[in-house]
Nucleic acid binder design. Sequence first.
DNA 1: CCTAATGTTTGTGC
DNA 2: AGCACAAACATTAG
Length: 272
Amino acid sequence: MTGRIVGYADTMPELPDVEAFRRVLVRHAVNRPIEHVDVTDPGVLRDVSRRRLRTTLRGKRFETPRRHGKWLVAPTVDGPILLLHFGMTGSLTWSADSEDRHRHDRVVLGFDNGELRYRDMRKLQGIRLVRDDDALDRILGSVGPDALDLSRQELTEIVGRLRRTVKTALVDQELIAGLGNLLADEILWRARIHPRRQCVHIGPRELGRLHTAMGAVLRQAVKNGRVLPRKNWLTGHRDDQPGTCPRCGTPLDHGRVGGRGTTWCPHCQQER
DNA sequence: CCTAATGTTTGTGC
DNA sequence: AGCACAAACATTAG
């Protein structure tokens, strides 16, 4: 109610959300000494102890962080690199004081002007600390190119010959980094491609639509800091009682693709 | 009590 | 090798 806490706390993190978390860090915490490190739940620490996180980070300053897919990479000046992944329920928020912490704020970094809070309910992923770029590469080495700056040609080269279902290819982080379940459905709906279509059967014209849809959806969502429910987007209609396609009014279909809940329009997105 | 949840990893089997 | 499927992780909401 005071506007003291900055950041999106209850959105499920995909590329645009992580980009928003990156901006929270840039805006409030870059280049300021970390004064204290509170680990209220070590369950989110991966390959790093509470003690080591605290002793290595205290007194350090963050450089400008970067994002790769759904990973937030935050190097410190002359120090280790903090790596954050937000799983399905994570977030990063800023608060100007230490009031009103949430019970799922698992790690808090304190600065002279406020604190950065890593919140995560389900603890499916977590926070890592690596000493250098080599160690970083060992963790991010298998992650594919970021979805935000993928050319049409690269997209074609990556998915064009796969026998897999297009949706499972889109959300596979080793192929393309940053797309999650919600974004994949949104992009496929906009490109009018059925989520169960095999990549190899998608023609060049459709691949062009896929690339255009990916860029448009991602740029808009990054601008908003999340995938915002909108009148002419699938998001905002997929969970309606009788969900109807915002383009043609046909009742939406829901099923399982690649083990994930998937929504599509049976009229706009033909199975083959 | 049961089910599903927008992520990732690991194992199994075709 | 490529791919699909299921389970596991931890927690909440309906």
